[in-house]
Every structure is written in structure tokens, then in C-alpha cells.
Design a protein around this nucleic acid. Structure first.
Length: 211
DNA sequence: CCTTTGATCATCT
DNA sequence: GATGATCAAAGGT
């Protein structure tokens, strides 16, 4: 486990996403630290070719952070009540991002449990993008924060986690959710903290070079 | 295990 | 005015 160079994020989210599996993301507040071990992520592009991406129709006030420097946090509000978090990829000006969809809480479980406000089992604490954001204590007003600076910290595995699984992205209507065109959801096979939604999609073991 | 449904509002058309 | 990178509770199999 090591702190990556910022250039790690200066690549397409398609390359970064699978290498974030198993990474540790820490967020510290006055209440203490929470560290997440990432188990499920999704890649989104910003070059106008990805209809599932917030950046598909160009830069707007909401997605502006996606077009900013890599290694920063893109947080957005949706469904009238939920916040989700991404890590920005690609060089500045070329938006792409990795949505954090599932993780295991490995530090600060008590704090994460308190934030979630329910008796969630350990595996459910950060299972799903909105739950993950609550468990970590990431707030909407932290949109644009540098993930390399406090209150954030990130470490990645010395060797990428293999094998990993791929499949269609979750919750996307229209062509952006088409597995054949955009199989850009990545997860650690069999991990209980992978989000359950639309899991009917068959987990195929990665035929990726890495696995 | 599964499916259905209500909640609730910023954003974009 | 419709939609959405969602969740939790309730009820069925």
C-alpha cells in the first residue's frame, strides 16, 4: 500500500477505475477518521462520447469539478436527498471521473455506524454510493476538495487487485447503461460490500490483461 | 430472497 | 415540468 503520484489520476477513468479497487480512502472530521477499502467503482468519461456521464453535454456549474485537476473530489446531490462522490481523472480540461460505489469500512466503524443512523450490518455501512458518502462523512460542500490533502488521504495497493469483475453501470437509463457498449463498472468478485442493485447482471471474471 | 413504492429537490430542458 | 450515477421500508414468495 502506498500513496500514488498525482499522475496516477492523470489518465482516463477507464484505466484508473480498476486500479482503485482495494485502495484506501480516508476522510477525517472533528469526529475522527473513517477509512474505506474500495470494492466497487464506475468509470465515466467527459469527452462527449459517454451518454451516461454528467459531463456528456459539456461543462455546467454542477459538473465543473470534473473538468478541473485530477485527484480531486467531485460530489453531487441527487434524488432530492442523496450525495455521491467521485475522484476526478484525466488531465485538467478533459473531464473523466470514477464514481465510488461500494467499500468496506476498515477504520472508524463506530463513527460510520453513527452517521448511517441505523443498525446496518458491517458489510452494508458503505455499500452503495450514497451510503458510502454518508459513512465517510463526505459532504456536498467538499465538492472540489483535493483528495491528496487533509481532510482526505488516499493509498493504493502496490500491485493491482486481481481478478476483478466488470459489468454494466448501475442506475443508468438509455444507452449509457448498455453493458455491450459501456461495461464500465468494476468490482472485487465476491466482496460483500459490493452494491446489490441490479446485480442480476452476470459477473464475468475479467478477461482484462491484468486478470 | 425478491419486488414495489414513496421520499424529495437541484439541475437541465 | 420531468428526471435522476438512490435508499429504506413494507410486503410477497
Amino acid at each position: 500500500m502506498h500513496v500514488p503520484d498525482r499522475s496516477f489520476f492523470e489518465r482516463s477513468s477507464l484505466d484508473v477505475a480498476p486500479e482503485l479497487l482495494g485502495a484506501h480512502l480516508t476522510h477525517i472530521t472533528d469526529d475522527g477518521p473513517v477509512t474505506l477499502r474500495l470494492t466497487e467503482v464506475e468509470a465515466y468519461l467527459g469527452d462527449g462520447t459517454d451518454p451516461g456521464s454528467h459531463a456528456f453535454r459539456g461543462k455546467t456549474p454542477r459538473n465543473a469539478v470534473m473538468f478541473g485537476p485530477p485527484g480531486h473530489v467531485y460530489a453531487y446531490f441527487t434524488y432530492g436527498m442523496h450525495t455521491c462522490a467521485n475522484l476526478v481523472c484525466s488531465p485538467e480540461g478533459r473531464a473523466s471521473a470514477v464514481l465510488l460505489r461500494g467499500a468496506e469500512v476498515i477504520v472508524g466503524e463506530e463513527l460510520a455506524w453513527r452517521r448511517r443512523g441505523s443498525k446496518a450490518p458491517h458489510r452494508d455501512l458503505a455499500r452503495g454510493p450514497a451510503r458510502l458518502t454518508v459513512a465517510a462523512g463526505i459532504r456536498l460542500d467538499e465538492n472540489g476538495s483535493d483528495a491528496f490533502e487533509p481532510p482526505f488521504a488516499i493509498e493504493i495497493p502496490d500491485t493491482p487487485v486481481t481478478p476483478f469483475a466488470t459489468g454494466p453501470r448501475t442506475g443508468i437509463s438509455g444507452p449509457g447503461g448498455d453493458e455491450a457498449l459501456y461495461p464500465w463498472r468494476f468490482w472485487i468478485p465476491g466482496d460483500p460490500s459490493v452494491s446489490p442493485y441490479k446485480r442480476h447482471a452476470r459477473a464475468k471474471s475479467s478477461g482484462h490483461p491484468a486478470g
